[in-house]
Write a protein that binds this DNA or RNA. Sequence first.
RNA 1: CGGGGCGUAGCGCAGCCUGGUAGCGCACCUGGUUCGGGACCAGGGGGUCGGAGGUUCAAAUCCUCUCGCCCCGACCA
Length: 482
Amino acid sequence: MSKVITPRAKDYSRWYTDLVIQAQLADYAPVKGCMVIRPHGYALWENIQRTLDAMFKETGHENAYFPLFIPESLLQKEAAHVKGFAPECAVVTRGGGKELEEPLIIRPTSETIIYSMYSKWIRSWRDLPMLLNQWVNVVRWEMRTRLFLRTTEFLWQEGHTAHATEAEAEEETRRMLEIYATFAEDHMAMPVLRGMKTEAERFAGAVRTYSIEAMMQDGKGLQAGTSHNLGQNFARAFDVKFQNKNSQLEYVWSTSWGVSTRLIGALIMQHSDDQGLVLPPRLAPIQIVVVPIFKSGDGVLEAAADLVKEIRTSTPGNGSFERSRVRLDDREGLSPGFKFNEWELRGVPIRIEIGPRDLKAGQVVVATRHDRQKQTVPRAGLAERLPSLLEEAQKSMLERARTHMASRSTPVDSYEDFKKQIDAPGGFLYCHWCGSGECEASVKTETKATIRCIPLDAPEEKGSCIRCGSASDRRVPFAKAY
RNA sequence: CGGGGCGUAGCGCAGCCUGGUAGCGCACCUGGUUCGGGACCAGGGGGUCGGAGGUUCAAAUCCUCUCGCCCCGACCA
């Protein structure tokens, strides 16, 4: 097996694929466009899942499970929705050796089947809000796929809520967007823009779509999570009505929101380097690895085992450190150098090296993955210091990503400059935009750049549209995106 | 669907032009020596060359068809 990862500077795209394969996050499956998520990648997903799931539950949501198959007739009930999704649906037409009476769609998203149930379950304002979420796989027959970023089948979470008022639904939509943003920043160490999607980029069937938008190391944008205010569109299509306090029948106001295994792709492209994965400590499946440099009988292995035991039993200094995520690498027959490289490839945030020299001197070597620094530190009191070292790494990764995003966010005022800068240096080009779909579309056709979002915190500023010159009230970030 | 590339050992590749029955590196197994940034020596296992058909005394190699995958574009989380 080739151990060399294509350097980022040579071919960013190749680097990404090499890294995913070699760090054993995923592998290509026998089915085109599909991937196998390997244990290291799945552990990452489990950590993402666990953290988000707790956040959802704290805000009152419950998990449920709706079926994989959706009757074709259900999908067709909401006009915009079917238009958006029909082309990329996988359809089952045979079962039990017979042609099915009605084809079954493999869910590309579950609004339709969920609202068909909501119409049975919701009768009264007392049934609201209905706050459900599910962690499932979905299938979208994409033309071009890319490990984690866009696969035919992917794992995600989809929240579906129904409310008595428009304001409440909007509040929920924004609340979940903020949860995604908080998760991205606090756990993934990935700064994001919170914003509203333009009409062209809106979810099929939504009134408003909000998203969090990240910037990868190559300056390209990545939509990392979406939250939709569905208004009463699906309620009307699926006849989801309730009686309000005045005994009148009303359609519910609903929302849906989701993040997917794409987040793993985002994590990789945000932080990793030519040596391999760089994972934020809070999400890293293994947070600390101890590598003994030993010969049998020199006592190093025992000392390393003691250290691991001590780390595992020491009181975590904060919520970021978990004792089960410490590993002792006592494999024989592999040189220390080999192990160092392997753990770096796999993105372990802290590596502790301990050899005969350290044993004598009462010290160890602590190597931090995100900055590739090594320092010699006293053995005494080490275990207690590790949680804060992890926390520092977490913080400095976020800082570094913030700095990167800021350094590649530039105001641009003329379309000439825009066309010059969109490929190199790229990044987010903040431009005035009149708000018309025509300008947005022609910029996209001519430069492949899209409006990532209309940032919620965009300051008011008078200007003229970069494309047509009409009046504009604020700048929006344009970028090429994954 | 358009453009490009590739299918030979688990992985990466050579061999193909000029047909003669398969090779290299890594990985793997055994034994030994090593071990502070991808160790070394010795021995060993593993492939009907993507599939089908054809030409030929003989096909990984030549011809025809076919299947699959990867990369770049249009679609998208």
